[in-house]
Amino acid sequence: MSDQAFNFAYLDEATKRMIRRALLKGIAVPGYQVPFASREMPMPYGWGTGGVQVTAACLTPEDTLKVIDQGADDTTNAVSIRAFFARTAGVETTTRTGEASVIQTRHRIPEEPLVEGQILVYQVPIPEPLRFLEPRESETRKMHALEEYGLMHVKLYEDIARHGEISTAYAYPVRVEGRYVMDPSPIPKFDNPKLSDNPAIQLFGAGREQRIYALPPYTQVVSLDFEDHPFVASKAEHSCDLCGCGTSYLDEVITDDRGGRMFVCSDTDFCETRRAQGHRGRLAPEERT
């Protein structure tokens, strides 16, 4: 049951209409950041207010919602946001990627491939990919308008000159349909290839910065690189110590003060599903009988 003291999905209808209009313009111009009049939410700026507003504008009573932070359903902020929508929209919630129709995420794209009919909502802290090269909004807006992305290429090239490779490990910039350079939110660059040609709708909300942007399904998204230094979606060279998966993105966990560590899938649903199917990693606990 939803909490009757609030409108469905918390926001008032006028606010939802405003966000919905921005979302549609975002879909029409993939990768372009649409300004929107972000509202103060009952959680702090920087804690997913953009994602929460986008989710609130998209949810229907029939939806099943999954919320992840760092790939995990049980991190505190994910728990808090999931509880917020269970309370204000009365929607079903799940931890299963395959069962969710709307997934709100911070910093990861689920390992399990998304399908048509799903919506992935990203929480975005700094939507402007050029911001750390040019702090002024008036200047970066001009650069996008003129398709003037030279500064970004110079930065990436300087990385290569200095380190032999591009030293951006997350929030790795992408080019959308050959037009807008876009910040994919602070996902590890390992996740970047999943942005492109994805059957799901991907929506990005930055509350404090008042921007919404979008990738329709099957949009072409290319990680910026150079012919002689092609983009590599790297990860730690280990397998998951719980489920044994060798291709998933891993969290490193320090297990003692003598250098002991283990690697586990950051996507908790993916890892649990594999273990339920009988997959075992190096340090998987013995099955209880």
Binding site: A9, E13, R17, C58, L59, A214, P216
Partner: peptide, 16 residues
């Protein structure tokens, strides 16, 4: 609230 939510999803899906 509920009908507008469903209608918006239809609009979003068709434009997307």
């Amino acid at each position: 609230p509920e009908q507008a939510a469903r209608a918006f999803r239809a609009c979003l899906e068709t434009l997307a």
